[in-house]
Design a protein around this nucleic acid. Sequence first.
RNA 1: GGUCGGAUGGCCGAGUGGCUAGGCGGAGGUCUGCAAAACCUUUUACAGCGGUUCGAAUCCGCUUCCGACCUCCA
Length: 487
Amino acid sequence: MDNQLVLYNTLTRRKEKFEPLNPPFVGLYVCGPTVYSDVHLGNCRTFVSFDLIFRYLLHLGYQVRYVRNITDAGHLEGDNDEGDDKFAKKAKLEQLEPMEIVQKYTLGFHEVLRLFNTLPPSIEPTATGHISDQIEMVKQIIENGYAYEVNGTVYFDVENYVKKHDYTILTNRKLDDLLDNTRELNGQDDKRGRLDFALWIKAKPEHIMRWPSPWGIGFPGWHIECSAMSSKYLGEEFDIHGGGMDLAATHHTNEIAQSQACNHTNPAKYWMHTNMLTVNGTRMSKSAGNGFLPYELFSGSHQLLNRGYSPMAVRFFMLQAHYRSTLDFSNEALDAADRGYKRLMNAIALLPKLKINTKKSAVNIGELKQRCYAAMNDDFNSPVLIAELFEAVRIINSVYDGKLMLDESSFAELNTLMQHFVHDVLGLIDDNTGAADFEKLMTVIIALRNEAKQNKDYTTSDRIREGLSSMGIQLKDSKEGTLWNKI
RNA sequence: GGUCGGAUGGCCGAGUGGCUAGGCGGAGGUCUGCAAAACCUUUUACAGCGGUUCGAAUCCGCUUCCGACCUCCA
Protein backbone atom coordinates (compact mmCIF):
# COMPACT_ATOMS: atom_id res chain seq x y z
CA MET A 1 0.00 0.00 0.00
CA ASP A 2 3.04 2.21 0.23
CA ASN A 3 3.30 2.14 -3.52
CA GLN A 4 2.03 5.05 -5.55
CA LEU A 5 -0.98 4.54 -7.79
CA VAL A 6 -0.22 5.41 -11.39
CA LEU A 7 -2.74 5.49 -14.19
CA TYR A 8 -2.62 6.03 -17.92
CA ASN A 9 -3.85 9.47 -18.89
CA THR A 10 -5.13 9.68 -22.46
CA LEU A 11 -4.52 13.42 -22.33
CA THR A 12 -0.76 13.04 -21.95
CA ARG A 13 -0.48 9.57 -23.46
CA ARG A 14 1.57 8.31 -20.55
CA LYS A 15 1.20 6.82 -17.10
CA GLU A 16 1.04 9.44 -14.38
CA LYS A 17 0.98 9.44 -10.61
CA PHE A 18 -2.57 9.73 -9.37
CA GLU A 19 -2.80 12.87 -7.28
CA PRO A 20 -6.39 13.97 -6.58
CA LEU A 21 -7.17 17.66 -6.73
CA ASN A 22 -8.71 17.64 -3.25
CA PRO A 23 -7.72 14.51 -1.35
CA PRO A 24 -9.24 12.45 0.12
CA PHE A 25 -12.06 13.29 -2.28
CA VAL A 26 -12.08 11.94 -5.82
CA GLY A 27 -14.50 12.97 -8.54
CA LEU A 28 -15.10 10.32 -11.17
CA TYR A 29 -17.35 10.83 -14.19
CA VAL A 30 -18.09 8.01 -16.61
CA CYS A 31 -20.19 8.33 -19.74
CA GLY A 32 -23.12 5.99 -19.33
CA PRO A 33 -25.36 4.28 -21.86
CA THR A 34 -27.91 5.65 -24.27
CA VAL A 35 -30.98 3.77 -23.12
CA TYR A 36 -32.85 3.18 -26.38
CA SER A 37 -31.99 -0.54 -26.58
CA ASP A 38 -30.56 -3.39 -24.53
CA VAL A 39 -26.99 -3.00 -23.34
CA HIS A 40 -24.69 -5.51 -24.95
CA LEU A 41 -21.59 -7.07 -23.46
CA GLY A 42 -19.23 -4.53 -24.94
CA ASN A 43 -21.07 -1.82 -23.02
CA CYS A 44 -20.91 -3.98 -19.92
CA ARG A 45 -17.16 -4.36 -20.18
CA THR A 46 -16.64 -0.62 -19.86
CA PHE A 47 -18.82 -0.43 -16.76
CA VAL A 48 -17.14 -3.45 -15.22
CA SER A 49 -13.75 -1.82 -15.90
CA PHE A 50 -14.77 1.40 -14.20
CA ASP A 51 -16.33 -0.60 -11.40
CA LEU A 52 -12.89 -2.08 -10.78
CA ILE A 53 -11.38 1.42 -10.79
CA PHE A 54 -14.10 2.76 -8.49
CA ARG A 55 -13.70 -0.17 -6.11
CA TYR A 56 -9.94 0.13 -5.92
CA LEU A 57 -10.08 3.87 -5.24
CA LEU A 58 -12.58 3.16 -2.45
CA HIS A 59 -10.34 0.41 -1.12
CA LEU A 60 -7.42 2.85 -0.98
CA GLY A 61 -9.57 5.00 1.28
CA TYR A 62 -10.58 7.75 -1.14
CA GLN A 63 -14.01 9.28 -0.81
CA VAL A 64 -15.17 8.86 -4.36
CA ARG A 65 -18.14 10.58 -5.92
CA TYR A 66 -18.88 8.42 -8.94
CA VAL A 67 -21.21 10.07 -11.44
CA ARG A 68 -22.47 8.06 -14.39
CA ASN A 69 -25.12 9.54 -16.62
CA ILE A 70 -28.08 8.01 -18.39
CA THR A 71 -28.50 9.44 -21.85
CA ASP A 72 -32.23 9.59 -22.49
CA ALA A 73 -32.53 12.43 -24.98
CA GLY A 74 -30.89 14.24 -27.78
CA HIS A 75 -29.17 11.57 -29.77
CA LEU A 76 -29.93 11.53 -33.45
CA GLU A 77 -28.87 8.87 -35.85
CA GLY A 78 -26.29 10.93 -37.67
CA ASP A 79 -23.89 13.67 -36.73
CA ASN A 80 -26.04 16.32 -38.30
CA ASP A 81 -29.20 17.93 -37.13
CA GLU A 82 -31.20 15.59 -39.30
CA GLY A 83 -32.35 12.02 -39.03
CA ASP A 84 -34.60 10.49 -36.42
CA ASP A 85 -34.34 10.70 -32.71
CA LYS A 86 -33.30 7.23 -31.56
CA PHE A 87 -35.88 7.19 -28.79
CA ALA A 88 -38.69 8.35 -30.99
CA LYS A 89 -37.79 5.78 -33.62
CA LYS A 90 -37.69 2.97 -31.12
CA ALA A 91 -40.88 4.19 -29.48
CA LYS A 92 -42.63 4.04 -32.82
CA LEU A 93 -41.27 0.55 -33.40
CA GLU A 94 -42.38 -0.76 -30.02
CA GLN A 95 -45.54 1.36 -29.92
CA LEU A 96 -44.51 3.00 -26.69
CA GLU A 97 -43.95 6.50 -25.38
CA PRO A 98 -40.31 7.59 -25.68
CA MET A 99 -40.14 7.75 -21.90
CA GLU A 100 -41.41 4.18 -21.70
CA ILE A 101 -38.45 3.21 -23.86
CA VAL A 102 -36.15 5.09 -21.51
CA GLN A 103 -37.67 3.42 -18.45
CA LYS A 104 -37.62 -0.05 -19.96
CA TYR A 105 -33.97 0.01 -20.96
CA THR A 106 -32.80 1.86 -17.88
CA LEU A 107 -34.27 -0.89 -15.72
CA GLY A 108 -32.68 -3.52 -17.95
CA PHE A 109 -29.33 -1.78 -17.70
CA HIS A 110 -29.49 -1.67 -13.91
CA GLU A 111 -30.50 -5.32 -13.71
CA VAL A 112 -27.59 -6.43 -15.88
CA LEU A 113 -25.07 -4.38 -13.93
CA ARG A 114 -26.47 -5.80 -10.70
CA LEU A 115 -25.88 -9.31 -12.02
CA PHE A 116 -22.30 -8.33 -12.80
CA ASN A 117 -22.01 -7.18 -9.17
CA THR A 118 -21.05 -3.62 -10.02
CA LEU A 119 -21.48 -0.99 -7.34
CA PRO A 120 -24.07 1.65 -8.18
CA PRO A 121 -22.68 5.10 -8.89
CA SER A 122 -23.09 7.86 -6.32
CA ILE A 123 -25.21 9.91 -8.70
CA GLU A 124 -26.86 8.76 -11.91
CA PRO A 125 -28.19 11.89 -13.59
CA THR A 126 -30.32 11.87 -16.72
CA ALA A 127 -30.10 14.25 -19.66
CA THR A 128 -33.82 15.01 -19.58
CA GLY A 129 -33.55 15.91 -15.92
CA HIS A 130 -30.92 18.54 -16.68
CA ILE A 131 -32.28 20.45 -19.66
CA SER A 132 -32.06 23.82 -17.92
CA ASP A 133 -28.44 23.21 -16.89
CA GLN A 134 -27.62 22.42 -20.49
CA ILE A 135 -29.42 25.52 -21.75
CA GLU A 136 -27.48 27.67 -19.27
CA MET A 137 -24.23 26.18 -20.48
CA VAL A 138 -25.10 26.81 -24.13
CA LYS A 139 -26.00 30.39 -23.28
CA GLN A 140 -22.63 30.88 -21.61
CA ILE A 141 -20.78 29.39 -24.57
CA ILE A 142 -22.61 31.76 -26.94
CA GLU A 143 -21.81 34.66 -24.63
CA ASN A 144 -18.14 33.69 -24.65
CA GLY A 145 -18.18 33.76 -28.42
CA TYR A 146 -17.76 30.08 -29.16
CA ALA A 147 -21.20 29.29 -30.52
CA TYR A 148 -23.75 30.75 -32.91
CA GLU A 149 -27.42 30.24 -33.55
CA VAL A 150 -28.98 29.63 -36.93
CA ASN A 151 -32.71 29.03 -37.33
CA GLY A 152 -33.23 27.77 -33.80
CA THR A 153 -30.20 25.50 -33.78
CA VAL A 154 -27.02 26.39 -31.91
CA TYR A 155 -23.63 25.23 -33.19
CA PHE A 156 -20.27 25.15 -31.50
CA ASP A 157 -17.80 27.26 -33.47
CA VAL A 158 -14.76 25.03 -33.77
CA GLU A 159 -12.99 27.40 -36.18
CA ASN A 160 -13.06 30.16 -33.62
CA TYR A 161 -12.20 27.79 -30.80
CA VAL A 162 -8.98 26.59 -32.42
CA LYS A 163 -7.62 30.13 -32.50
CA LYS A 164 -6.99 29.93 -28.78
CA HIS A 165 -7.33 26.28 -27.89
CA ASP A 166 -6.08 22.88 -28.90
CA TYR A 167 -9.19 21.14 -30.22
CA THR A 168 -7.47 17.79 -30.79
CA ILE A 169 -5.60 17.71 -27.49
CA LEU A 170 -7.12 14.38 -26.47
CA THR A 171 -6.38 12.38 -29.60
CA ASN A 172 -3.34 14.25 -30.90
CA ARG A 173 -4.69 14.39 -34.41
CA LYS A 174 -3.83 17.14 -36.82
CA LEU A 175 -6.60 19.60 -37.39
CA ASP A 176 -5.87 19.86 -41.10
CA ASP A 177 -6.23 16.12 -41.52
CA LEU A 178 -9.50 16.22 -39.66
CA LEU A 179 -10.75 18.95 -41.95
CA ASP A 180 -9.61 17.02 -45.00
CA ASN A 181 -11.32 13.87 -43.92
CA THR A 182 -14.58 15.16 -42.58
CA ARG A 183 -17.54 14.71 -44.81
CA GLU A 184 -18.46 17.57 -47.03
CA LEU A 185 -21.20 19.80 -45.80
CA ASN A 186 -24.26 18.41 -47.47
CA GLY A 187 -26.25 21.59 -47.39
CA GLN A 188 -28.95 20.16 -45.19
CA ASP A 189 -27.82 21.99 -42.11
CA ASP A 190 -26.67 25.47 -41.40
CA LYS A 191 -23.35 25.04 -39.68
CA ARG A 192 -20.50 27.21 -40.86
CA GLY A 193 -17.55 24.92 -40.33
CA ARG A 194 -17.48 21.28 -41.13
CA LEU A 195 -16.20 20.38 -37.63
CA ASP A 196 -18.89 22.44 -35.92
CA PHE A 197 -21.32 20.40 -33.84
CA ALA A 198 -24.76 21.10 -32.46
CA LEU A 199 -25.27 22.24 -28.86
CA TRP A 200 -29.02 22.74 -29.20
CA ILE A 201 -31.21 21.45 -32.00
CA LYS A 202 -34.47 22.85 -33.26
CA ALA A 203 -37.26 20.31 -32.97
CA LYS A 204 -39.21 19.39 -36.06
CA PRO A 205 -42.99 19.40 -35.65
CA GLU A 206 -43.15 15.61 -35.34
CA HIS A 207 -40.40 15.50 -32.74
CA ILE A 208 -41.86 14.34 -29.43
CA MET A 209 -39.04 15.02 -26.99
CA ARG A 210 -38.89 18.81 -26.97
CA TRP A 211 -38.24 21.64 -24.57
CA PRO A 212 -38.51 25.42 -24.74
CA SER A 213 -35.28 27.40 -24.91
CA PRO A 214 -34.09 30.92 -25.77
CA TRP A 215 -33.69 29.65 -29.35
CA GLY A 216 -37.13 28.14 -29.63
CA ILE A 217 -38.51 24.64 -29.10
CA GLY A 218 -35.80 22.04 -29.34
CA PHE A 219 -33.65 19.48 -27.62
CA PRO A 220 -30.02 19.34 -26.46
CA GLY A 221 -27.10 18.21 -28.60
CA TRP A 222 -25.21 15.02 -28.03
CA HIS A 223 -22.24 16.22 -26.04
CA ILE A 224 -23.52 19.02 -23.86
CA GLU A 225 -25.27 16.82 -21.28
CA CYS A 226 -22.03 15.34 -19.98
CA SER A 227 -20.40 18.75 -19.73
CA ALA A 228 -23.39 20.19 -17.90
CA MET A 229 -23.89 17.30 -15.50
CA SER A 230 -20.23 16.66 -14.71
CA SER A 231 -19.62 20.31 -13.83
CA LYS A 232 -22.84 20.44 -11.82
CA TYR A 233 -22.00 17.49 -9.59
CA LEU A 234 -18.21 17.39 -9.63
CA GLY A 235 -17.24 20.97 -10.29
CA GLU A 236 -15.68 22.67 -13.28
CA GLU A 237 -12.50 20.68 -12.69
CA PHE A 238 -12.54 17.17 -11.31
CA ASP A 239 -10.22 14.19 -11.16
CA ILE A 240 -11.13 11.46 -13.60
CA HIS A 241 -13.30 11.42 -16.68
CA GLY A 242 -13.78 8.05 -18.28
CA GLY A 243 -15.57 6.17 -20.98
CA GLY A 244 -15.07 3.76 -23.82
CA MET A 245 -12.27 4.44 -26.27
CA ASP A 246 -14.78 5.03 -29.01
CA LEU A 247 -15.91 8.18 -27.25
CA ALA A 248 -12.52 9.86 -27.15
CA ALA A 249 -12.28 11.18 -30.68
CA THR A 250 -15.66 12.87 -30.90
CA HIS A 251 -17.64 12.93 -27.68
CA HIS A 252 -14.82 13.68 -25.26
CA THR A 253 -13.02 16.00 -27.65
CA ASN A 254 -16.20 18.05 -27.83
CA GLU A 255 -16.75 17.87 -24.09
CA ILE A 256 -13.34 19.40 -23.51
CA ALA A 257 -14.08 22.12 -26.06
CA GLN A 258 -17.41 22.90 -24.42
CA SER A 259 -15.92 23.14 -20.95
CA GLN A 260 -13.03 25.27 -22.16
CA ALA A 261 -15.45 27.54 -23.99
CA CYS A 262 -17.77 27.81 -21.00
CA ASN A 263 -15.57 27.52 -17.91
CA HIS A 264 -12.09 28.03 -19.36
CA THR A 265 -10.95 24.69 -17.99
CA ASN A 266 -10.30 21.20 -19.18
CA PRO A 267 -12.93 19.49 -17.05
CA ALA A 268 -10.81 16.53 -15.94
CA LYS A 269 -7.23 16.09 -14.81
CA TYR A 270 -7.11 12.46 -15.94
CA TRP A 271 -8.92 11.01 -18.94
CA MET A 272 -9.25 7.24 -18.90
CA HIS A 273 -10.46 5.11 -21.78
CA THR A 274 -11.37 1.45 -21.76
CA ASN A 275 -10.81 -0.73 -24.76
CA MET A 276 -13.33 -2.61 -26.84
CA LEU A 277 -14.68 -6.11 -26.53
CA THR A 278 -14.24 -7.92 -29.83
CA VAL A 279 -15.83 -10.91 -31.50
CA ASN A 280 -13.56 -12.70 -33.95
CA GLY A 281 -11.26 -9.71 -33.79
CA THR A 282 -13.90 -7.15 -34.68
CA ARG A 283 -15.41 -4.68 -32.32
CA MET A 284 -18.73 -5.63 -30.78
CA SER A 285 -21.15 -2.86 -31.59
CA LYS A 286 -24.81 -2.20 -31.93
CA SER A 287 -24.58 -1.07 -35.51
CA ALA A 288 -22.43 -4.02 -36.63
CA GLY A 289 -25.07 -6.39 -35.29
CA ASN A 290 -22.50 -8.62 -33.61
CA GLY A 291 -23.48 -7.64 -30.11
CA PHE A 292 -24.14 -10.28 -27.48
CA LEU A 293 -26.90 -9.48 -25.05
CA PRO A 294 -26.09 -10.43 -21.47
CA TYR A 295 -28.96 -12.87 -21.13
CA GLU A 296 -27.88 -14.61 -24.35
CA LEU A 297 -24.54 -15.20 -22.70
CA PHE A 298 -25.92 -16.30 -19.35
CA SER A 299 -28.29 -18.78 -20.96
CA GLY A 300 -26.03 -19.76 -23.83
CA SER A 301 -28.81 -19.04 -26.32
CA HIS A 302 -26.59 -17.02 -28.68
CA GLN A 303 -25.78 -19.02 -31.80
CA LEU A 304 -22.03 -18.52 -31.43
CA LEU A 305 -22.01 -19.99 -27.93
CA ASN A 306 -21.75 -23.64 -26.95
CA ARG A 307 -23.22 -23.07 -23.50
CA GLY A 308 -24.10 -20.44 -20.94
CA TYR A 309 -21.78 -18.73 -18.48
CA SER A 310 -22.56 -17.20 -15.14
CA PRO A 311 -22.28 -13.42 -14.71
CA MET A 312 -19.43 -13.87 -12.26
CA ALA A 313 -17.48 -16.09 -14.64
CA VAL A 314 -17.91 -13.44 -17.32
CA ARG A 315 -16.80 -10.72 -14.93
CA PHE A 316 -13.72 -12.80 -14.14
CA PHE A 317 -13.13 -13.25 -17.88
CA MET A 318 -13.21 -9.48 -18.36
CA LEU A 319 -10.92 -8.81 -15.41
CA GLN A 320 -8.35 -11.28 -16.72
CA ALA A 321 -7.57 -8.78 -19.46
CA HIS A 322 -6.27 -5.26 -18.83
CA TYR A 323 -8.85 -2.54 -19.35
CA ARG A 324 -6.79 -0.85 -22.07
CA SER A 325 -6.41 -4.01 -24.16
CA THR A 326 -8.97 -5.37 -26.53
CA LEU A 327 -10.54 -8.57 -25.29
CA ASP A 328 -11.71 -11.21 -27.71
CA PHE A 329 -14.74 -13.30 -27.09
CA SER A 330 -14.69 -17.03 -27.76
CA ASN A 331 -16.06 -20.25 -26.32
CA GLU A 332 -12.59 -21.48 -25.47
CA ALA A 333 -11.63 -18.28 -23.68
CA LEU A 334 -14.87 -18.28 -21.71
CA ASP A 335 -14.46 -21.94 -20.74
CA ALA A 336 -10.94 -21.26 -19.51
CA ALA A 337 -12.10 -18.25 -17.51
CA ASP A 338 -15.02 -20.18 -16.05
CA ARG A 339 -12.74 -22.92 -14.76
CA GLY A 340 -10.23 -20.45 -13.39
CA TYR A 341 -12.99 -18.55 -11.64
CA LYS A 342 -14.28 -21.72 -10.01
CA ARG A 343 -10.79 -22.69 -8.90
CA LEU A 344 -10.46 -19.32 -7.20
CA MET A 345 -13.86 -19.60 -5.53
CA ASN A 346 -13.23 -23.18 -4.35
CA ALA A 347 -10.01 -22.06 -2.69
CA ILE A 348 -11.80 -19.24 -0.89
CA ALA A 349 -14.45 -21.68 0.31
CA LEU A 350 -11.63 -23.74 1.84
CA LEU A 351 -10.34 -20.85 3.96
CA PRO A 352 -12.59 -21.49 7.01
CA LYS A 353 -11.65 -25.18 6.90
CA LEU A 354 -7.89 -24.62 7.11
CA LYS A 355 -5.97 -25.96 10.09
CA ILE A 356 -3.89 -23.36 11.83
CA ASN A 357 -0.41 -24.38 12.90
CA THR A 358 1.35 -23.10 15.95
CA LYS A 359 4.71 -23.22 14.26
CA LYS A 360 5.90 -20.25 12.32
CA SER A 361 4.38 -20.03 8.87
CA ALA A 362 6.41 -21.25 5.94
CA VAL A 363 4.90 -18.72 3.59
CA ASN A 364 5.24 -14.97 3.44
CA ILE A 365 1.78 -13.51 2.92
CA GLY A 366 3.10 -9.98 3.39
CA GLU A 367 5.19 -10.19 0.23
CA LEU A 368 2.26 -11.54 -1.72
CA LYS A 369 0.12 -8.69 -0.48
CA GLN A 370 2.72 -6.18 -1.63
CA ARG A 371 2.71 -7.72 -5.09
CA CYS A 372 -1.09 -7.48 -5.20
CA TYR A 373 -0.95 -3.78 -4.42
CA ALA A 374 1.88 -3.28 -6.88
CA ALA A 375 -0.24 -4.85 -9.62
CA MET A 376 -3.26 -2.65 -8.97
CA ASN A 377 -1.16 0.45 -8.46
CA ASP A 378 0.24 -0.05 -11.95
CA ASP A 379 -2.73 1.33 -13.84
CA PHE A 380 -5.25 -1.09 -12.32
CA ASN A 381 -3.56 -4.20 -13.68
CA SER A 382 -6.17 -6.76 -12.72
CA PRO A 383 -4.69 -9.61 -14.83
CA VAL A 384 -1.45 -9.42 -12.86
CA LEU A 385 -3.43 -9.18 -9.62
CA ILE A 386 -5.31 -12.34 -10.57
CA ALA A 387 -2.02 -14.10 -11.34
CA GLU A 388 -0.83 -13.19 -7.82
CA LEU A 389 -4.09 -14.40 -6.32
CA PHE A 390 -3.56 -17.80 -7.90
CA GLU A 391 -0.39 -18.00 -5.82
CA ALA A 392 -2.69 -17.56 -2.83
CA VAL A 393 -4.91 -20.32 -4.22
CA ARG A 394 -1.93 -22.64 -4.36
CA ILE A 395 -1.05 -21.77 -0.76
CA ILE A 396 -4.59 -22.37 0.47
CA ASN A 397 -4.86 -25.74 -1.29
CA SER A 398 -1.46 -26.82 -0.03
CA VAL A 399 -2.32 -25.92 3.55
CA TYR A 400 -5.58 -27.82 3.22
CA ASP A 401 -3.62 -30.82 1.94
CA GLY A 402 -1.29 -30.53 4.93
CA LYS A 403 1.70 -29.82 2.71
CA LEU A 404 2.24 -26.30 4.01
CA MET A 405 2.13 -24.69 7.45
CA LEU A 406 0.22 -21.53 8.23
CA ASP A 407 0.37 -19.81 11.61
CA GLU A 408 -2.44 -17.75 13.02
CA SER A 409 -1.24 -14.32 11.97
CA SER A 410 -0.41 -15.48 8.44
CA PHE A 411 -3.82 -17.10 8.21
CA ALA A 412 -5.49 -13.86 9.28
CA GLU A 413 -3.43 -11.96 6.76
CA LEU A 414 -4.34 -14.39 3.99
CA ASN A 415 -8.01 -14.18 4.90
CA THR A 416 -7.95 -10.40 4.76
CA LEU A 417 -6.01 -10.44 1.52
CA MET A 418 -8.61 -12.60 -0.21
CA GLN A 419 -11.49 -10.60 1.22
CA HIS A 420 -9.96 -7.31 0.10
CA PHE A 421 -8.80 -8.24 -3.35
CA VAL A 422 -11.25 -10.89 -4.51
CA HIS A 423 -14.43 -9.49 -2.99
CA ASP A 424 -13.84 -5.79 -2.45
CA VAL A 425 -11.58 -4.89 -5.38
CA LEU A 426 -12.34 -7.44 -8.10
CA GLY A 427 -15.97 -7.61 -7.00
CA LEU A 428 -16.11 -11.39 -7.41
CA ILE A 429 -18.56 -13.33 -5.30
CA ASP A 430 -19.26 -17.05 -5.20
CA ASP A 431 -22.32 -17.86 -7.27
CA ASN A 432 -21.78 -21.54 -6.57
CA THR A 433 -23.25 -21.83 -3.08
CA GLY A 434 -26.74 -23.16 -2.68
CA ALA A 435 -29.55 -22.20 -0.36
CA ALA A 436 -29.28 -23.15 3.32
CA ASP A 437 -31.68 -26.08 2.96
CA PHE A 438 -29.70 -27.32 0.01
CA GLU A 439 -26.49 -27.22 2.03
CA LYS A 440 -28.12 -29.33 4.77
CA LEU A 441 -29.41 -31.78 2.20
CA MET A 442 -25.93 -32.21 0.79
CA THR A 443 -24.56 -32.85 4.27
CA VAL A 444 -27.03 -35.71 4.74
CA ILE A 445 -26.30 -37.23 1.32
CA ILE A 446 -22.55 -37.03 1.85
CA ALA A 447 -22.90 -38.67 5.27
CA LEU A 448 -24.89 -41.55 3.75
CA ARG A 449 -22.30 -42.03 1.06
CA ASN A 450 -19.45 -42.03 3.55
CA GLU A 451 -21.27 -44.70 5.56
CA ALA A 452 -21.51 -46.83 2.43
CA LYS A 453 -17.82 -46.26 1.76
CA GLN A 454 -16.89 -47.35 5.26
CA ASN A 455 -18.86 -50.54 4.70
CA LYS A 456 -16.97 -50.92 1.41
CA ASP A 457 -20.30 -50.76 -0.38
CA TYR A 458 -18.76 -48.96 -3.34
CA THR A 459 -21.72 -49.77 -5.58
CA THR A 460 -23.90 -47.52 -3.45
CA SER A 461 -21.30 -44.82 -2.92
CA ASP A 462 -20.59 -44.61 -6.65
CA ARG A 463 -24.29 -44.52 -7.44
CA ILE A 464 -24.65 -41.50 -5.19
CA ARG A 465 -21.63 -39.79 -6.71
CA GLU A 466 -22.72 -40.49 -10.28
CA GLY A 467 -26.25 -39.44 -9.55
CA LEU A 468 -25.06 -36.12 -8.18
CA SER A 469 -22.61 -35.73 -11.04
CA SER A 470 -25.37 -36.11 -13.59
CA MET A 471 -27.15 -33.14 -12.03
CA GLY A 472 -23.99 -31.05 -12.06
CA ILE A 473 -22.73 -31.57 -8.54
CA GLN A 474 -19.17 -32.73 -8.15
CA LEU A 475 -17.90 -34.54 -5.06
CA LYS A 476 -14.31 -34.30 -3.93
CA ASP A 477 -13.03 -36.78 -1.34
CA SER A 478 -10.10 -35.91 0.86
CA LYS A 479 -8.71 -36.94 4.22
CA GLU A 480 -10.51 -33.99 5.79
CA GLY A 481 -13.87 -35.09 4.43
CA THR A 482 -15.89 -34.70 1.29
CA LEU A 483 -16.40 -31.36 -0.43
CA TRP A 484 -18.85 -30.57 -3.18
CA ASN A 485 -19.37 -27.89 -5.75
CA LYS A 486 -21.53 -27.25 -8.77
CA ILE A 487 -19.89 -27.56 -12.15
C1' G B 1 -6.37 8.11 -47.45
C1' G B 2 -5.12 10.37 -42.32
C1' U B 3 -4.25 9.31 -36.99
C1' C B 4 -3.40 5.74 -33.35
C1' G B 5 -2.77 0.87 -31.42
C1' G B 6 -1.61 -4.24 -32.02
C1' A B 7 0.95 -9.09 -33.78
C1' U B 8 3.41 -13.48 -27.41
C1' G B 9 3.35 -20.89 -26.79
C1' G B 10 -2.87 -25.53 -28.54
C1' C B 11 -6.47 -21.27 -26.57
C1' C B 12 -6.99 -16.72 -23.56
C1' G B 13 -3.87 -13.13 -21.70
C1' A B 14 0.28 -10.17 -18.68
C1' G B 15 5.04 -8.29 -18.83
C1' U B 16 9.80 -6.76 -20.08
C1' G B 17 16.80 -4.88 -22.27
C1' G B 18 19.71 -10.33 -18.94
C1' C B 19 15.79 -13.50 -13.78
C1' U B 20 9.31 -19.30 -14.49
C1' A B 21 3.66 -14.12 -15.46
C1' G B 22 -0.99 -16.40 -14.66
C1' G B 23 -5.43 -19.17 -16.20
C1' C B 24 -7.33 -23.11 -19.44
C1' G B 25 -5.79 -27.39 -22.23
C1' G B 26 -1.96 -31.65 -23.09
C1' A B 27 1.76 -35.25 -20.70
C1' G B 28 3.89 -37.73 -16.34
C1' G B 29 3.79 -38.37 -11.00
C1' U B 30 1.86 -38.20 -5.64
C1' C B 31 -2.65 -39.04 -3.00
C1' U B 32 -7.14 -42.21 -3.45
C1' G B 33 -11.32 -48.39 -3.04
C1' C B 34 -11.99 -46.03 -7.83
C1' A B 35 -12.87 -41.22 -9.62
C1' A B 36 -12.67 -36.12 -9.08
C1' A B 37 -10.21 -32.29 -6.74
C1' A B 38 -5.60 -30.82 -4.95
C1' C B 39 -0.28 -30.76 -5.04
C1' C B 40 4.55 -31.65 -7.76
C1' U B 41 7.03 -32.01 -12.52
C1' U B 42 6.63 -31.09 -17.58
C1' U B 43 5.40 -29.44 -22.86
C1' U B 44 5.08 -25.68 -27.03
C1' A B 45 6.43 -18.25 -27.24
C1' C B 46 7.45 -13.74 -28.23
C1' A B 47 4.96 -12.00 -37.01
C1' G B 48 9.30 -11.50 -40.69
C1' C B 49 14.00 -9.03 -42.06
C1' G B 50 17.86 -5.78 -40.70
C1' G B 51 20.28 -2.56 -36.87
C1' U B 52 21.88 -0.74 -31.70
C1' U B 53 23.93 -3.64 -27.47
C1' C B 54 28.27 -7.85 -23.86
C1' G B 55 23.07 -9.35 -24.22
C1' A B 56 16.43 -7.94 -27.40
C1' A B 57 10.67 -11.08 -27.40
C1' U B 58 11.57 -6.12 -24.94
C1' C B 59 14.96 -0.25 -28.06
C1' C B 60 15.39 1.64 -33.52
C1' G B 61 14.25 1.01 -38.87
C1' C B 62 11.80 -1.53 -42.78
C1' U B 63 8.19 -5.34 -44.41
C1' U B 64 3.72 -8.20 -43.88
C1' C B 65 -0.84 -8.82 -41.48
C1' C B 66 -4.82 -7.15 -38.10
C1' G B 67 -7.79 -3.70 -35.44
C1' A B 68 -9.79 1.06 -33.65
C1' C B 69 -11.00 6.13 -34.62
C1' C B 70 -11.91 9.79 -38.61
C1' U B 71 -20.24 8.71 -39.28
C1' C B 72 -24.52 7.00 -33.89
C1' C B 73 -22.10 3.25 -30.69
C1' A B 74 -18.90 1.64 -24.06
